[in-house]
Nucleic acid binder design. Structure first.
Lengths: 231, 231
DNA sequence: CCGGTCCGGATTGTATGCAGATTGAACGCA
DNA sequence: TGCGTTCAATCTGCATACAATCCGGACCGG
């Protein structure tokens, strides 16, 4: 096959970055970011078995960088070598989702409290604007923007917690929970916005205890929602 | 080059497994386990830059599976593509070590308390025997066995915590802290054995609060030791 | 003596070829 | 019809070839 075939996706590498250093632009990174994005967009569903040649052709790369990218994603837990031989997009079930939330319930309040008072006003304001924009917009078709603002808020106190390892763990857990939310959860925009606003209030008023409580309440709300929603 | 050149290492795949399902035996897994072992044995030091062809020849594989294995290790944080082009064995500095311990101090007591009462007696006894063997043996040259018993103990309550996600996070954090301990810390066998025994006592007597405290004390002891030891 | 340029070896990035394993379907036999 | 067998298409595992890039040192001009 002619490997010069055009790539189907218009994904610029780094589209998902949130303030990280720019990754070197090679095909492995392109695969990595593309597949991540495809999973987040549900173009690749949990449990889906990946055929290397097909995906490689779709992305316009050969199998070698594709496999390397998939191995990296395996290390991060987004895909698994399911039993047999081929890679499978990781499927997060309700049980694992709740377990992840349990760990987040331990870590994120801690991070929020630690970050309290160390977050630049400007950053808080930016996240607040994002939320306001979401409230103003029509209630439809903003799920993508909603995920983004969700990321922004949680990243806000994770990054400013003063503990990079803690932040990294939170990010990783959020990858898992996001995977499930994408696949199984309906709109939760309204309660999220409300709870996020409360978290921002606490962070802004430098009230560590309140921030901790607000974050914990938020995550517990997610647990209840999942239990109530998922069939 | 003749790829049939003999592998230098006598590493059987799965040597580091602790009750996990056996990984399929392919060269990528061999690379993965071998490099992990080499790092743990200080044959590959933190910050060391990996030359693909050389390491591939050492392991008796071609560059393709070598690179795939390294990509996977990158996903897990054992190696990084440091700035430039080649892979570099991750170097954990004191700051990151302490940050990781801080997170472990949050998670591991939680896991220990959760596991309390759910651990088969036989498993506790096995770990206790391992510790006893270590105490009996000469104080020299057992650092490898010490690491292994360390793994066994922490794995004991992580695996039985009832939360696989939590267990996975603990494992991941312990990879980081172990990396530092291998590189920078001297013998800490005696205090470790003592503190591990106390943890086992608490677990065995099904005293959740005591287990939590014992684990927390152990991790804090590690923090103090690092601060006191590292120049 | 110093700085710059050019060249060659070393090293990584990527594609491709091939062998072995697997799957599924067609086919024959009871 | 039901079941085992065989064969072909498919797919992954791995090696290797080649291109692109990088690094260091020699050489040349000032």
């Amino acid at each position: 096959m002619d490997q010069a075939g055009e790539a189907v996706l218009g994904i610029e590498p780094g589209v998902t970055d949130a303030g990280e250093a720019a990754a070197p632009s090679n095909l492995v990174n392109l695969v990595y970011t593309s597949v991540t994005a495809m999973i987040r967009r549900r173009q690749l569903r949990g449990g889906h078995s990946i055929v290397e040649a097909k995906l490689a052709a779709q992305l316009g790369v050969s199998r070698t960088p594709l496999r390397e990218g998939l191995q990296r994603l395996e290390g991060e837990g987004l895909v698994v070598k399911g039993g047999g031989r081929s890679f499978v997009v990781r499927h997060v079930d309700l049980g694992e989702y709740l377990q992840s939330l349990k760990v987040r319930e331990i870590l994120e309040p801690e991070a929020a409290e630690a970050a309290c008072g160390h977050i630049p006003e400007a950053e808080i304001a930016a996240v607040r604007r994002e939320i306001a924009g979401l409230q103003a917009g029509s209630t439809m078709l903003h799920t993508d923007a909603h995920w983004q603002s969700d990321d922004a808020l949680h990243e806000l106190f994770a990054r400013n917690s003063g503990n990079d390892v803690l932040a990294q763990m939170i990010r990783r857990l959020r990858v898992t929970t996001r995977l499930f939310e994408i696949a199984r959860l309906q709109d939760r925009v309204a309660p999220d916005l409300r709870e996020h606003a409360q978290i921002l209030d606490a962070l802004e008023s430098h009230d560590g205890k309140a921030a901790r409580k607000a974050v914990q309440a938020h995550i517990r709300s997610l647990q209840r929602f999942a239990l109530a929603t998922v069939r």
